[in-house]
Every structure is written in C-alpha cells, then in structure tokens.
Design a protein around this nucleic acid. Sequence first.
DNA 1: AATACGGGGTG
DNA 2: CACCCAGTATT
Length: 324
Amino acid sequence: MLQQTQVKTVLPYYDRFLKTFPDVFKLAEAEEATLMQHWEGLGYYRRARSMHAAAKRIVEDHDGVFPSDFDEVLALPGIGRYTAGAILSISGDQRFPVLEGNTQRVFSRWVALRRPPTETQSTKLLWQIAESMLPPKKGSGLFNQAAMELGALVCTPKNPNCGECPVRKHCAAHRFGKEAEIPGKLAKIKYESRREYAFVVREAGAGDDEPPRYLMRALPEGVRWSGLWDFPRTIERSIDSVEEAAVEVSVSLNQPLQIGEPLTRIKHAVTKYRIELQVHHADLPSPSASQNHDSESPWKFVTAKEMKKLPLSVTGRKIAKLLD
DNA sequence: AATACGGGGTG
DNA sequence: CACCCAGTATT
C-alpha cells in the first residue's frame, strides 16, 4: 500500500484492510472484487492484484508462511528490491538496505550528489550508500525506518528543516549550503491534456416502481482501472466531440448510442495525463437490444444501491453519487 | 532507458 | 499548477 503513496493516505485503508483480511489465508481466498473494494481510491490498483497473487503463492508454495529468504520475497509479484528489503529488515531485522523516495533524497543530500537520483548511475551509487550505512549487525530495520522518517519529516523535498536535523553536521549538502538544489531536478514531466467522455445509460422500459439501473462493466485486464467497474467511457486517447465519443463507445457496446443531456464535467489526472471527463446521459434506442446482450458481454445494468458494493474508479464513484 | 500506472497532499 | 509520495512491471 505504501508504494508511491503517503503514509497518511494509507492509514485508514490499512486498518480496514487488516480487519477484513486478518491473515494470508483470508486474503488468498478472497474474491478479487472484495479486495478492489477495499483498495478503491488508493490508486495503482495493480498493487492490489499483485498482493492477491502473492498471498495465493504464499499459501500454495510456502505453506502460508511469509518467506524469510530475500530472493523468495523478491520473486513475489508486486515486490521489488525496496519492498523486499523493507519487509525483511523491519520484520526480521535482516541486513538489507532500502531506497525509495525518502532515502533517495536523504542520501543524495548526505553525499551532495550532483546528478538526479533517478539516473541509473545515481541509483546504483545510492543503493551502495544505503547498504554501507547500515549498522554492521543488528538494527537495520530501525535504521531503515529512521532514514525514511528523517526524509518524510525533516529532510523534506522543499524547505528542508536542517536546523532540526540530528545529522546535519555530517551532511555534505548542508555543509555546502546546497540542500535546496539537491537532489538534482528530475527531467520535467511532459503533461498531456486529454478530453474523454463517459455516458450514463439508463435502462429503458423499467417499471415505475423499480429503481433505475445503469449500464456498467468491469474494466478488463491490461487497461486503466483494470478490475474496477465504470460507466461506458472513452479511454486511451483524447476525443474532441461527444459524437465521436458516442461512436467509439457504441463499438464496444456493440449497439448504437443516442447522446442525451450533459450531466457533469470531472477533471482528474492519471500519471502524465490531465483529463477533462465530459459526462453525458445517453440512451440505447432499441430497448430489446438493451436486454438481449449475449453472455460474453461484460456489460450489466446496475442500480445505484448495487454500485455502492462494487469497486469503482474515483470518477465512476463521483458519477454514481450523482445518480443516488 | 522509457513508460504506464492513481489519486491526494502541499507549497 | 507543478511536484512528490515508504515503486514495480513492462516495453
């Protein structure tokens, strides 16, 4: 959960997660949708799927006991060098270093590294530094956590609080007065603006006493928000007009889509993309077609109440709230 | 080596 | 708005 996500953000998720999945067996046998439900809003959803796969493998290959061998931990899905080192140093005080956002910055300043820390050579050097600074025998877990905590609370990206830093006397960046310029600037991200469209398709021909149902589907493997549910929407490229978007969505629905009134406009960001999502109502002109989709189709009509129990993307959730 | 993957917090 | 977060997997 903590990969690329601030501790403060994770805390409430973590507590709920442990209550629902108190051990590796519960996690392994859970439905993926249940897992995703608990992950909703955290982002980087592949982490949840990887964790699920890892739990299954721990049950199958390790008799339900988390491995203590570095290479076996590293081999688990979703676990790289950082996470393997963090787990083994913190849980068993094994002597492995960690290098992540915080320690990258802390050690870059420590040695006054000129180059951006993400360059291959820098990364190699920083891992060596992290390893060399570990206490020789006991205490690697405590050291790693302290180093990360120092980065999170004192040695911050902007306006580092060197006056409070317990190790400032040994920090090369501070000695040179270069703490503001180090770590070196990363290559500037090229942001890309996109316009995308979503459609709220209300089921035609439902009785007046029935709650309305809306078309949704779970995103398939290999696309954004894989494993989450969402309304029909465009994805993967910018689209200029609602008409063009309707055609695109019609293809995936395998039936024509009649554009209705605009409902809302949601701005959000996915990595380098800044997306303006235009949301329209829409109809399926032939009611029979809306009921007779084949069993291969992922699309389903869902009530607002049912949406509350499905894992939705954040934008999907925002739209769902408007329908309730 | 570059890119995809989310969403929220912060200055 | 730009940058960053207790990164990993894939191309």
